[in-house]
Amino acid sequence: MEKRTIVAVLVFAIVAVFFFFSIFLIHPFGKPGQVNMDDHIIANTQNETGTNNGVTSVVFDYRGFDTLGEATILFSAVAGVLMIFRRVKQ
C-alpha cells in the first residue's frame, strides 16, 4: 500500500469515529434547544420589516451582511470563470 492510501484510511477512520459519537450529542430531531432569537424574528417580522415572509426578512434585513458576502462570492466566481476562459474566445 502506498503512503497516500494509509493516510486516507486513517483520516477516514478518525472522522468516522468523531461523527458517529457526535450524532447522539445533538438535540433530538424536531426539538431545538435555543430558540429565543428565532422566536423573536417570527414574532416581530411583520412589525419590524413589514414582510410576510420570515426567510426573506432574515436574508435581506436581519442578516444582510451574509447576503453581501454571498453576492461577493458569486461575483468573484463569475470573474474567475471568465478569467480562466478568457483566451478561448475566437
Binding site: P32, D66, E70
Partner: peptide, 17 residues
C-alpha cells in the same frame, strides 16, 4: 426556525459558484 433556512439559501448559491 427561519435563520437556518436563510443560511442554507446562502450556502446553496455559494455551492453553485
Amino acid at each position: 426556525l427561519p435563520v437556518p433556512q436563510a443560511l442554507t439559501l446562502t450556502s446553496i448559491v455559494i455551492g453553485v459558484a
